[in-house]
Structure formats: C-alpha cells, structure tokens
C-alpha cells in the first residue's frame, strides 16, 4: 500500500509539472534555422558568351510573399585555375510573367576545364557558395574513313567524354573552282552518337556532307575542282550538373542550379584518298 501511494503521488506530481511548464505555448516557428539567409541560385556559366548571368534570390518565408531584397549582398567569382577574381553586378530583370528577378552579371568568358567558385557574401561573410567546372577538353581520336564514294563515313571518338555533345557542326573550309575565295560550309549534326567504352562516338557521313557542301556553294554535284583547305568540328559540351538535376548538388547554403556550358573545336586532316572519294582536291594546311 505504501508503494502504491508513492506511485500515485509521483504520477500526480508529474501531471502538475507538465501542466505548468508545457501547456501555454501556442506559437510556431515554421522556418528551420538552416533555411534562414539561404539563397536560390539559377543559371550557368556560358563559354559561348562574354557576359555571364546568374539569378540569385533569398529564400522567402511563404509562397505568397514578395521577393526579398538582396541589397548589401555581393556576388563574386574566382577562377581557381588562374586566380582571376570578378565582382558581379546586381541588376533587376522583368521576367516573362511580369515579376522581377535579381540578376547578377559579369563580363568574362569562362574557359574549358577551368573551375569557378561563385560566392554570395555580405560584409565579407560568405552566405552561399557554388563550385562549377567547365567541361574538360576531350581528346579526339579520328578513325580512318571507311566505304566508297557512295557510302563514305568516318568515326570520331571523344575519349573519356561521358555526356552527349550537343549542337555538333562539321565545318568545311573550301575554295570553289571559280577561285571566288575561301568559303566555310557548316554541316549540322545535331546531337549525334552514343556512349561507348572509349567515351562518346559518332560517325561523320562524308558522302552526304559532299552534297551539303556542293549545295552550299551552288554547284552541281558533279562539278570537279573544289579544294578542301580545312576540316573541323564544333560542339557544345555540358558540365556534369546537367545530368544530375535533383540528385547531387554543387551548392552550399543555397538551392537551385548552377552549371556550365563549354564550346569545343577540333581540326583534323582528311587523307587524299578520302577526299578523292568525296570528289574534292586536297588543299589542307598542315596543323
């Protein structure tokens, strides 16, 4: 009985304590601490342009609230390969829905294989940081051409490349027989090829390229005497972030997306036999 009374008394005391200390609070702080002073960053470094643009906004506390001012915040970047430091300029843009966005811009052209740090800070204190690497320059392996003049092709391998190159163009620098000067014919290949053990591979269709070149020069397909001076390809390469949306993040104290786009160009020599099968003369300048 004594033990029973003791337990009963303890229970009553616990009840009263809970009532006293826990009962009155009725407010909620719905924003997690790690969400305060956190940013949303959207954009990509673009090697095709000399002007870089990134949207940087503070996270808002509710969906209905207006965008928060980023006055006092500074956005800067460092090229970790050569140490170049850039301070980005703050500007406002009107978006397609009539809303406004905070846009930061900087004049420079990023380089293939370079690593850039983008830093959002205030009074020297880093608020958010992102690291983005431009795609590395791939090593190119050009296989000998195969086939006859009716079906002539050449395989090109980008060694070690993991992502599909896009906006691939073959560029033929040619001199027509009328000696009207050097002309450049761009043959669009779109987003060709497939991944392989070596990297990324695609085939150049030299037979059909001849038709495009002759058409571009306004010549009959049977016209002889066109000289090829240079053969090259140009393509757009995407950084790894594009392939991992929602899976990995390169942002610290920030959400969103920051990636990069690079442009890659490569020139190679077509042998005389191949050019002969194409009906062209070899006037290539040695690399």
């Amino acid at each position: 009985m004594k033990a029973f009374h003791h337990i009963a008394r303890t229970t009553m005391l616990a009840t009263i304590s809970l009532l006293t200390f826990a009962g009155c609070e009725n407010t909620i702080d719905p924003i997690a601490d790690e969400g305060k002073d956190t940013f949303a960053i959207y954009g990509y470094l673009d090697m095709r342009s000399s002007l870089q643009k990134v949207r940087v906004e503070l996270l808002r506390p509710t969906v209905l609230s207006e965008p928060l001012s980023v006055d006092g915040y500074q956005v800067s970047s460092i090229d970790q390969n050569d140490g170049t430091f850039q301070i980005w300029k703050d500007s406002m843009v009107v978006l397609s829905n009539g809303g406004v966005g905070n846009l930061f811009v900087s004049k420079f052209q990023p380089q293939l294989g370079h690593v850039y740090s983008l830093i959002v800070s205030r009074n020297g204190v880093t608020g958010a940081e992102a690291i983005v690497e431009l795609p590395k320059q791939p090593e190119v392996f050009v296989e000998p051409s195969v086939g006859d003049s009716l079906d002539l092709s050449q395989r090109i391998a980008l060694l070690g490349a993991t992502d599909k190159p896009t906006a691939v163009y073959l560029l033929y620098e040619v001199i027509p027989p009328d000696d009207s000067g050097v002309k450049v014919i761009r043959v669009a290949y779109g987003d060709p090829g497939a991944a392989s053990a070596r990297g990324w591979e695609f085939d150049v269709n030299l037979t059909s390229d001849r038709y495009v070149i002759m058409n571009g020069l306004g010549l009959n397909i049977k016209t002889k005497g066109v000289i090829v001076r240079r053969v090259s390809m140009e393509m757009t390469l995407f950084s790894k972030e594009w392939g991992s949306i929602g899976k990995e993040t390169n942002l610290k104290r920030a959400h969103g997306f920051l990636a990069s786009v690079g442009v890659f160009e490569h020139t190679w020599q077509l042998d005389s036999v191949t050019l002969g099968k194409m009906g062209f003369l070899n006037g290539q300048i040695p690399n």
Binding site: G35, Y42, K53, R55, L59, R60, P61, W242
Partner: peptide
Amino acid sequence: FNESLGFDRWVLLDSLVNVTEIP
C-alpha cells in the same frame, strides 16, 4: 511537422533556358 527552409522559384534547367526571362 516539417519545417521549411523557405520558398524559391524553381527553374527547370533541362536545356539552355534563359534565366533572365523564365520566372
């Protein structure tokens, strides 16, 4: 309950979207 970190305007960058226009 779920605390939120906040709200942003999510831009789907599955292509070379112009972030100066897309809200």
